Measured scan of single mutants.
Amino acid sequence: NQESVVAAVLIPINTALTVGMMTTRVVSPTGIPAEDIPRLISMQVNQVVPMGTTLMPDMVKGYAP
């Protein structure tokens, strides 16, 4: 099972992602793959992401799977 990126904290809208904001977990449905965390650093979320929420591609500005 592939791990997906999950919010480790509440991430406010338009916040640039940092390593500490993200964790990984096997979830269903799957979100952004864990191995993409290095690509996500400094990208901004386009909505509020509650802690424990799986990051989906459409939540991150400029992210393309």
Rank of each mutant, 00 (worst) to 15 (best):
T24N: 10
M21T: 05
S4K: 02
P50G: 09
N1K: 02
P65K: 09
I41G: 05
L17I: 07
D36M: 15
Y63C: 04
V9P: 00
M51L: 06
A16C: 04
V49T: 08
V26T: 11
A34Y: 05
V49S: 01
S4G: 04
K61Q: 11
E3P: 04
M43E: 05
M51A: 12
P57N: 08
M22R: 01
P38R: 07
G52Q: 10
I37S: 08
K61T: 06
I13Y: 06
R39P: 02
T15G: 09
P33S: 09
V19R: 07
Q47A: 06
V9T: 13
V5H: 00
G20D: 05
S4R: 02
I13M: 10
M56S: 12
T18D: 14
D58F: 08
L55A: 00
A7T: 11
V45N: 02
T53D: 07
Q44M: 09
T23V: 10
Q47P: 00
T15M: 09
M51G: 06
G62I: 04
G62Q: 11
V45L: 11
Q44C: 03
L55C: 02
V5I: 12
S28K: 03
M51C: 04
T23D: 13
I37L: 07
V19A: 13
V26L: 14
M56W: 05
V27P: 01
S28I: 09
S4M: 02
T30I: 15
G31T: 02
A16L: 10
Q2T: 12
T53A: 13
V9H: 14
P57Q: 09
G20R: 07
T54C: 03
A64W: 05
A7E: 00
Q2N: 15
M56V: 13
P65R: 10
L10N: 07
V9E: 04
E3C: 03
A7G: 13
P33L: 04
T15C: 03
V6R: 02
L40S: 00
A64R: 10
G31H: 02
S4Q: 03
V49W: 01
L40E: 00
E35D: 10
K61N: 11
L55Q: 00
R25T: 12
M43D: 14
I11H: 00
V5L: 07
P29N: 07
N1P: 10
G20N: 13
I41F: 04
Y63L: 13
I32D: 00
P33E: 03
I11W: 00
Y63R: 05
I32H: 01
T53L: 05
I11S: 00
D58H: 10
I41P: 02
I37F: 09
M59G: 01
V60W: 01
L55M: 13
L10P: 12
N1I: 05
P50L: 13
I32Q: 01
V9Y: 10
V45P: 02
G31P: 01
I11Y: 01
I13K: 08
V49I: 10
S28D: 15
M43V: 12
P33M: 09
V9M: 13
S28P: 02
R39F: 07
G62L: 07
V45K: 00
G52D: 13
N46I: 12
E35C: 04
V27F: 02
A16F: 14
I37M: 07
G20C: 04
A16E: 12
A64I: 08
V26D: 15
G52E: 10
T53R: 06
M56G: 14
G62R: 04
M43I: 05
P38C: 06
G31W: 02
T23I: 09
G62T: 08
T18M: 11
A34L: 05
L40V: 10
I41M: 09
G62V: 04
N14P: 01
I13Q: 11
G52M: 10
G52Y: 08
G20K: 14
R39K: 14
M21F: 06
V9C: 03
T23R: 05
G62S: 07
V60A: 02
P33F: 11
V60H: 01
I37V: 13
I41W: 08
P65Y: 02
P50R: 09
E3H: 06
P57E: 12
M21D: 05
T23N: 11
Y63N: 03
Q44Y: 10
G52C: 09
P38K: 12
T53H: 08
A64S: 10
V6C: 03
V27K: 06
A8K: 09
Q2E: 15
E3G: 03
P12Q: 13
D58T: 14
G20P: 10
T54E: 02
P57F: 12
V60K: 01
T24D: 03
E3M: 05
V49R: 02
P50N: 14
T54F: 03
R25E: 15
L10M: 15
V60P: 01
T23H: 15
Q44W: 11
K61E: 09
G20E: 14
P38D: 10
T54L: 07
Q44I: 10
D36K: 12
M21C: 03
P33H: 09
P38T: 09
P12N: 14
V5Y: 01
A16D: 14
V6Y: 03
V49E: 00
T30A: 13
Q47C: 03
T18Y: 05
V49H: 01
V26I: 07
Y63V: 04
V48S: 12
P12K: 10
V19Q: 14
V27A: 13
P12V: 04
I37W: 05
T54K: 05
I37Y: 11
V49Q: 01
V45D: 00
N14W: 15
P57T: 14
P29H: 05
M59T: 11
P38H: 12
A64Y: 05
L17P: 02
N46M: 08
A16Q: 15
T30R: 03
G62P: 06
S42G: 12
P57Y: 11
P50S: 14
I11N: 00
P12S: 09
I41S: 05
L40F: 02
N1Q: 10
S4N: 02
V5G: 00
L55F: 09
L40Y: 03
V5D: 01
M56L: 10
T24K: 13
T30Y: 15
G31V: 09
I41C: 04
V27S: 15
I41E: 12
M56H: 09
A34F: 04
I37Q: 12
S4D: 00
L17C: 01
V6D: 00
N46G: 13
R25M: 10
T30L: 14
P57V: 07
M21S: 06
A7N: 01
D58Q: 15
K61W: 06
E3K: 03
N46W: 06
M59N: 04
M56R: 11
P38F: 05
N14C: 06
G62D: 09
E35Q: 06
D58N: 14
Q2M: 11
M22H: 01
Q44D: 03
T23F: 13
L17R: 01
Y63T: 04
P50K: 04
G20V: 08
T53K: 11
A34N: 11
V5S: 02
I11M: 09
